[in-house]
């Protein structure tokens, strides 16, 4: 089984700890994972802002970078959804047949991390240890586009020492939405503040999610408020063990 990590541009540049955690977690589960250095960005920000044609070189790049791997695993629901839902659309609207080849070949091999763990590796107890209270925010793209369902919470519930507290209004968008966060900053911030209010009401130490772009926004609001909580990617919780605790 040849497995490639698609780290995503946000994790590569801003949240390497999430990508490192994903590598450690997969290796601990006996998966040999590779990081093809030709990868950059899936094109989601460009596509969602209306620059579809500018994503075409990135689609082709993704195709080349991940050629030959059985599975491509990414710790980002929205990037997985970008490939799965939008690559076929980009191929259909574009004129380059290579786009169709990439979409056809990459879509079935693209897995969001929790899908890969639960559906392919068939594990829910990954042997993690995380002695904190945690509340889970299911990001919209994971929830609605990928249909992750209870995969993330199944994984969290099996973590030793972890107490999962339900997040009120969990399914409501946090307000990030890519360029929405700056184009409609007032509404975006109002949504983020409501999300953080709900998170704080749980009293949990950590708000956990599976998409660092949303967490960047939520954590940004938390830090602005000097909230006692932090936002943390699911992979970092799952990678944490007694021997190698998250720090």
């Amino acid at each position: 089984m040849r497995v490639a990590l698609f780290a995503t541009c946000v994790n590569d540049a801003v949240y390497p700890s999430t990508a490192i955690a994903t590598v450690r977690l997969l290796e601990r589960l006996g998966v040999q994972v590779d990081f093809p250095a030709a990868q950059t960005c899936c094109g989601q920000p460009q596509f969602n802002t209306g620059y579809r044609r500018d994503t075409e070189p990135l689609v082709r790049r993704m195709g080349r970078a991940f050629e030959g791997y059985d599975y491509v695993v990414t710790p980002s629901g929205s990037c997985a959804a970008m490939v799965r839902d939008n690559y076929p659309r980009i191929a259909a609207k574009g004129t380059d047949p290579r786009l169709t080849q990439v979409a056809d070949s990459l879509v079935p091999r693209m897995y969001e991390l929790t899908e890969f763990l639960v559906d392919v590796l068939k594990v829910t107890d990954v042997g993690a240890y995380f002695p904190h209270t945690v509340t889970y925010h299911p990001s919209c793209h994971g929830l609605r586009m990928l249909g992750l369902g209870d995969r993330p919470t199944q994984l969290l519930k099996a973590v030793r020492g972890l107490e999962l507290i339900e997040l009120p209004g969990a399914e409501e968008c946090c307000g990030f939405g890519g360029t929405f966060a700056v184009k409609n900053a007032d509404v975006s911030a109002a949504m983020g503040e409501d999300k953080v209010r709900n998170a704080r009401s749980t009293g949990a130490d950590v708000l956990c999610g599976a998409d660092n772009s949303c967490l960047m926004h939520i954590d940004g609001v938390m830090r602005r408020q000097d909230a006692p909580q932090r936002a943390l990617h699911l992979a970092e919780i799952l990678a944490s063990t007694e021997e190698e605790p998250w720090s």
């Binding site: 994790n11 540049a13 949240y15 590598v23 900053a185």
Partner: peptide, 21 residues
């Protein structure tokens, strides 16, 4: 500015993931 009016920017890491790798 639209971002930082209401949110802190993330702290940049010591090195990007590709260097760690």
């Amino acid at each position: 500015g639209q971002w930082t009016n209401s949110r802190d920017l993330p702290q940049m890491p010591a090195e990007p993931f590709r260097d760690w790798w």
